[in-house]
Design a protein around this nucleic acid. Sequence first.
RNA 1: GCCGCGUUGGUCAAGGGGUUAAGACGCCUCCCUUUCACGGAGGAGUCACGGGUUCGAUUCCCGUACGUGGUACCA
Length: 507
Amino acid sequence: MSTVRVRFAPSPTGGLHLGGVRTILYNYLFAKQNGGKFILRIEDTDQSRYVEGAEQYIFDCLEWCGLIPDEGVVQGGDYGPYRQSERKALYAEYAERLVTEGKAYYAFDTTEEIETMRTTLKSAGKNSLQYDASSRTSMRNSLTLMPEETKTLLQNGTPYVIRLKVEPTERVAFDDLIRGHIELELAVVDDKVLLKADGMPTYHLAVVVDDYLMKITHAFRGEEWLPSAPVHILLWKYLFGLDNMPKWAHLPLIMKPDGNGKLSKRDGERLGFPVFALQWPDASGNMQAGFKERGFLPEAFLNMLAVLGWHDGTEQELFSLEELIEKFDLDRVHVAGAKFDFEKAKWFNAEWIKKLPTTNLIPYVKKVLVEENIHLKDDDFLVKIIDLVKERCTLFPDFYEQSKFFFVSPVEVDTASIQPKWNADKVDFFNSFTQKIEDIANWTAESIEATFKEEVVQHGIKPGELLMPFRIMLVGAKYGPGVFEIAALIGKEETKKRIEFTLKALV
RNA sequence: GCCGCGUUGGUCAAGGGGUUAAGACGCCUCCCUUUCACGGAGGAGUCACGGGUUCGAUUCCCGUACGUGGUACCA
């Protein structure tokens, strides 16, 4: 049994969105669980749509997710180059070989001529407007032209493409790792362009040639590729033999949460959630926050993506990357598309924030707080705070709201919530309480609470009447962890200061 | 239009001839917390439709509907 080799081949035309990352993830999991190699190549065959920086972006995404290729554009390897633009000559060679063997042909038709052909077919009431066995005989290609004419055209540098000669009577079949046996008629596929006029291969030629030369054993891709599988099978048959063809798995699509259709890069903006792993500009050039920028943990992001279309059959929902490698099973990948649910995605993040050791969270929380101009003391202090508030946080920006009062006195205090029931007795209470805390030698949540309770008894007021005002004094509003915990952490002086501040505001 | 793939609560889903049809997110109620969350206990809500096959279909078969993908010198 040869080594499992899988690959992912993104095109540098835009940000990596959910479907793409999930395909990478499944590829990665499969490779790792079989002790194989995960290879990254770049499909920059459509240079008209090439976007500057998109390639680096792909590397950055992989790094953030922790899905590092074993071989490829960055790491190198024995089967390079891994960028298709650098393999241009290679593809042309195979395309020529197909022409020589009568499996493909040169086509000199211009875009306008093809347009004309289609309108003619349409007005004739034809359903199929394809460049195929039925229409190629009336087009300008090496099948219809005299050999000398073709030769002259080529010598004159006339632009041409190489098209696959699809025999409509053939049928092809293959076994999909997820969907089982699939049979397709070639009558419905057109004579696909293999080599474009600019000398670049189309996806169809490139994927087959690269998969062969890079010894790929298993190929995972989105379901949208299923209809073109016959083309690839034909190419394998003509070029390298069906026995060498990788096993295919067509993954279900990730769909829009509302309405219909597969999730697209524009949906994030429209629906208010990220669709990219990392930030990426939208069509109008505005930067769209990715999962990273929105405050997701890569662990949560990967976990959420893994179970969108795959389920391990038990009740477990939280999986680390190591567990995913161990448990992932192609047989348990769904056949139907899944709608993306941002609420559930957030839940995964909240779970991972609770699950991960606090020390792992420090860098993320620090970043958020520093961006809010919070002056941070030592890590020990931060760890105590994180422990206190982390179960109240879903995304990292929540840490700011949930912990800012540990660092700065509340600017706005919600006195309106205290005012209605405020009276002289309560003022007395807080005045004597501020006196009493002077004497607390060991400033801990327990001692503060004990002192507070004693005072409450002395004044004969219900504790509930006083706890909320106290909280509002310290936090500024009605939320947060235990009041005595907060008082303990911010210190005696700060506690006094905040009580006195609010007392004045309430007059 | 044609071809492919699909269809279990609002969403993710387990199950696969006989089940009270798991579980999770979200929603609702209550408990805990003299706050907000976390946690706990409950609740509402589902097998697209029509025919077969069968003693019995959510499950198997065939249709229909609906969804979705493809039908490019895009990937």
